[in-house]
């Protein structure tokens, strides 16, 4: 799988409200509500302003989370990034 780079939405585009195990996201651009579970909120929070692919994201997430024990995180993160892109929450850089 190609490790594509994505860019997060502008900081003011999303309103993010954790609701227990779910996180509700309101996208001000599409006016859509999304409900996501971990690791989606963590990915969005970690992306920051720069474009990043799964390899770069894994490196940054590893600073806060224990990714080693989860096996190879990179293909999983690449899949999650593609899903976030399909929801319009991140876009191809």
């Amino acid at each position: 799988m190609t490790d594509r780079a994505y860019r997060a939405a502008r900081a003011d585009a999303l309103r993010i409200e954790p609701l227990g195990e779910l996180t509700a996201l309101f996208d001000r651009r599409s006016m859509q509500t999304h409900l996501v579970v971990s690791p989606m909120p963590e990915i969005l929070e970690t992306m920051g302003d720069d474009a990043s692919n799964a390899t770069a994201l894994a490196r940054r997430l590893a600073a806060s989370f224990d990714l080693e024990s989860e096996g190879d995180a990179i293909p999983v993160l690449a899949e999650r990034l593609a899903e976030l892109a399909a929801m319009g929450l991140v876009e191809r850089a």
């Binding site: 609701l19 227990g20 195990e21 779910l22 509700a24 006016m31 409900l35």
Partner: peptide, 17 residues
């Protein structure tokens, strides 16, 4: 949980969107 109540009430609201 808060998440399930949120989902159920979006379904129960006629003007949420």
């Amino acid at each position: 949980g808060e998440g399930e109540a949120f989902v159920r009430l979006t379904e129960a609201s006629t003007n949420y969107v």
